[in-house]
């Protein structure tokens, strides 16, 4: 029960939020720049990797997940794993047709 309450009223100072924003803009620039290079298949995975980094920043800081307890983190992980399975297992069909 206590794990969700841990530090749930944490205040994130403005400078830190602005720093995160700057990083997000830099990553946006990076992903646009990378898209101009000719990388073949790496293209998709590279862009997704950058998107995941951006998502991580938003979740960890803007959404305060860094300061939440284990419960919410675990449940978020459960959700993402579920989605990954739904998409991944469909390829047992598509990749072998």
């Amino acid at each position: 029960m206590a794990d969700i309450e841990k530090d749930s009223h944490h205040i994130i100072r403005y400078p830190k939020l602005v720093m995160v924003w700057v990083f997000l803009l830099l990553l946006t620039g990076l992903t646009v720049w990378v898209s101009r290079l000719d990388l073949g298949v790496l293209h998709v995975w590279g862009s997704l990797a950058i998107a995941v980094m951006k998502a991580f920043l938003v979740i960890a800081f803007f959404m305060h997940m860094r300061y939440e307890g284990r419960l919410l983190r675990g449940l978020l992980l459960l959700t993402l794993v579920t989605l990954a399975i739904f998409i991944g297992f469909t390829f047992f069909d598509l990749s072998y047709r």
Binding site: T28, T31, V32, S35, H43, V44, S47, L48, I50, A51, K54, A55, V58, I59
Partner: peptide
């Protein structure tokens, strides 16, 4: 967050 994934998938990759 959703847009962060829509952007590369539709505009970039």
């Amino acid at each position: 967050l959703i847009w962060i994934f829509i952007f590369p998938l539709y505009y970039l990759v």
